[in-house]
Computed example of a mutant assay.
Amino acid sequence: MSASKRLVVCGGSGFLGSRICKYAVQRGWDVTSISRSGQPKWETVTSSASPPSWAHKVSWERADILRPATYGPLLKTADYVVHSMGILLEADYKGVVSGRESPITGLRKAFGPVDPDRGIKRPLDQKAGEEVLTPPNPADQFTYEIMNRDSAVMLAKQAAAEDTKAFAFISAAAGAPILPSRYITTKREAEQTIASEFPRMRGIFMRPPFMYDSSRKFTLPVAAMAGAGNLFNTVTRGVFGGFMGAAATKPLPVETVAQAVVEALEDENVKGPVEVPQIEELAKKSWRKNML
């Protein structure tokens, strides 16, 4: 067991975030999850509707990532902070799932002309205590700039103010051709800003590929296609790699990425972008520790 550390995971109720919490608990860390829902709806992130045995060791807190005043106090004394949230399409994905919003609306928002910043001040331009990322129209909050970039920069700003040792941002592997370029460019902008503006805090930028798990059946065929794309890219020696983007990147089990995140936080030598091969190595290192 590692010495007790305090970890805060923003997005800890999600597909990846919940598993990061799990592996941190296994190390005996004090773990706090921050999300709008508090505790996850377990049937959406695991194969069971019942909380797993480790869940009672996590403090499941409700807060709004777009309003730092709601989560700022939870960051005090945190050794590590993780930003594990973002969007694939500029739509209210929960609204799409529930039927309140059409998937076509999300596609139109993603590929149509937009005002990406919606008139909101960037996090570094906002004064302490006055930070807020909520646009006048709540529907406008689901943009790549706000969800994938500014929310991460804002969280890093708050973490740095609390002298957090390490900050892990869940970025992404090179973008796939089916997604707008702004999906990946906003991720990279977040990485660059966090690294340059908060140099005293060890920034870790995980770049996972498509993640899958048997608890989410729809991820399995997608992972199979991504795996085929990776094999094709290997056979052709990367001739089409630039075009295929993430579609040519080997998919990983979400458990592998979660293990790697926790290992990266504890390993003081890990800093900056973490690509797929290193993610796999970190996960193996974590697995060996758990076997001892």
Rank of each mutant, 00 (worst) to 15 (best):
A223I: 07
S13I: 06
S214G: 01
R122W: 04
W54F: 09
K284W: 10
T193K: 04
T134F: 00
E101A: 06
E131M: 14
S102L: 11
K5T: 06
W287K: 14
N230Q: 07
E145N: 04
M154T: 10
I184E: 07
P138R: 09
P116H: 05
L89A: 07
V257Q: 06
E275F: 13
A161M: 09
F205Y: 15
R149Y: 10
Q158D: 01
K5D: 02
P180I: 03
A246L: 03
S171K: 02
E130C: 10
H83N: 12
D140S: 09
V81W: 03
I20E: 04
S102C: 07
N230S: 15
S214L: 07
G242Y: 05
R36A: 01
K187C: 07
A224T: 11
D140R: 01
A63L: 07
E189N: 11
D92A: 02
P51G: 06
G119R: 09
Q26R: 13
M201W: 10
K127V: 13
G28I: 09
K217Q: 10
K285G: 02
I204W: 00
P208L: 02
L75Q: 05
E189V: 00
M291H: 12
G17V: 06
S84L: 07
A173V: 13
L107D: 01
T134S: 14
R149S: 02
F111I: 01
I34K: 01
E266Y: 12
A173Y: 03
E191A: 05
P136W: 02
S35M: 02
D115I: 05
K109M: 10
S50D: 15
R237F: 14
V239G: 01
K41M: 08
V239M: 09
R207G: 02
V257Y: 10
P221F: 06
A190Y: 05
T134I: 13
S196K: 14
M244Q: 01
G227M: 03
R27K: 14
A173I: 10
R216N: 12
I104R: 12
P273A: 12
A226Y: 13
I104S: 11
F205S: 04
G99E: 04
V132G: 15
D150Q: 12
E263F: 06
N269D: 12
T236N: 01
T105P: 00
N233T: 11
G106W: 09
F218L: 03
R237I: 06
V45K: 00
R202V: 08
D140F: 09
A224D: 01
K289I: 12
W287P: 00
D79P: 09
P113G: 10
T219M: 07
G229N: 05
K157T: 14
V239L: 14
D64E: 13
R207V: 07
S171I: 04
K76H: 13
G106V: 11
A173C: 13
S59M: 08
W287E: 15
S53A: 15
R182Q: 15
G106K: 08
A172I: 08
L179C: 00
T70G: 05
G72P: 00
F15W: 11
G241N: 07
S98N: 14
G241A: 12
S33A: 14
S59P: 00
E275R: 12
S47Q: 02
G129H: 10
A264Y: 07
F240A: 15
D79T: 14
V261E: 04
T46E: 04
L231F: 11
P209Y: 02
A190T: 06
R67D: 15
